[in-house]
Simulated assay, not measured.
Amino acid sequence: MLKLLRPAVTRLLTPLGRALVRRGIGPDAVTAIGTLGTVVSALFFFPMGLLTAGALVITVFVLFDLLDGVVARLGGGGGSTWGAFLDSTLDRVADAAIFSGLILYFIADGDALLAGVTLFALVAGLLVSYAKARAEGLGLTCDVGLAERPERLVVVLVAACFSGLGVPYLLAAGMWLLAAAGAVTVVQRVVHVHRQTRER
């Protein structure tokens, strides 16, 4: 579903991308701004318990992940290899900030269990990304799995947003779901890579 929505969102962001290109702003700058905004928002709003505000502001900055691609295609400069590396690296920084902000929120709320579950979800998400990067570095494919980054972001931001609006148990359910889905995805990718290595 998210892959089907991506072209539509990209079309909506194209006018803004053109405006940035005209002002000499390249995709690398867009990537950096999006990451900085996500990190600051997550570590400011979430620990204070402002879950809805944090989720909404972070969502705006997450869209920069699509906008940098639009700017690059429209001629905003930036080497594609370097841009891809920078984008992937800063994605991990943004993810870590989002989950760290929630961990701090749970700790402040006295909920050690959910803090631990969220930490597990963070580590599992990082392993999902690492497994793919390592496999591709070895010349293998690894585009499999239940929960890739877009799905994880949707779950965590929707859960945080509606939890802040008073929907009970939603944030807890979201964290447990992400922890389980992350673990399953890591196993799926390990199995997928193992099968490829046996076929060689």
Rank of each mutant, 00 (worst) to 15 (best):
Y169Q: 14
G110E: 06
V117I: 13
F162S: 11
L90Q: 00
Y169V: 15
G101H: 01
L165T: 07
T118L: 03
E148Q: 13
V128N: 03
L157P: 01
A94C: 01
S129V: 00
L165N: 07
I103E: 04
G110Q: 10
T118M: 07
D109A: 15
V155S: 12
L86Y: 07
R149E: 01
Y105R: 13
L153M: 13
D87Y: 02
S100V: 13
L171K: 03
A97H: 01
S100E: 10
V93E: 12
L122M: 08
F106M: 10
P150Q: 04
A131P: 11
L113I: 15
S163M: 14
S129R: 00
L153P: 09
R149S: 05
L102Y: 04
L140R: 04
L140H: 08
A108G: 13
V93Q: 05
R134Q: 14
V155N: 11
G137W: 02
A96E: 11
A115G: 11
L171M: 09
V123I: 13
A108D: 11
A159P: 10
L127F: 11
L127Y: 09
A112Y: 13
D109R: 15
A135Q: 07
L113P: 13
V123Q: 06
S163H: 15
D143W: 14
D91G: 00
L140Q: 08
F99H: 04
Y130T: 06
V93A: 11
A124Y: 02
D143I: 12
L119H: 07
C142V: 04
A121S: 06
L122W: 06
E136A: 02
G110T: 01
V128L: 06
L90A: 06
F120Q: 09
T118W: 02
L86V: 08
Y105F: 14
D143G: 11
D91Q: 04
G116C: 02
R149W: 02
Y169F: 15
V117L: 09
G166W: 01
L126G: 14
G137D: 09
V158E: 15
A172C: 15
V158R: 01
D143P: 15
S100K: 07
Y130E: 08
L127P: 09
I103R: 03
V167R: 03
L114N: 12
R152E: 05
D95E: 11
C161Y: 07
Y105W: 11
D91C: 01
L157Y: 04
L138K: 11
E151G: 13
D109K: 15
E151D: 13
Y105K: 12
V117Y: 03
A135K: 02
L126I: 13
V158K: 04
G139H: 03
P168W: 04
L113C: 10
V117P: 03
G137F: 01
G110P: 05
R134K: 12
A173N: 08
L113W: 14
A108R: 15
A94R: 00
G125I: 01
L157G: 03
G164N: 08
L138A: 15
L126R: 06
I98Q: 05
F106W: 10
V93F: 10
A160N: 04
G164S: 11
G139S: 06
G125T: 01
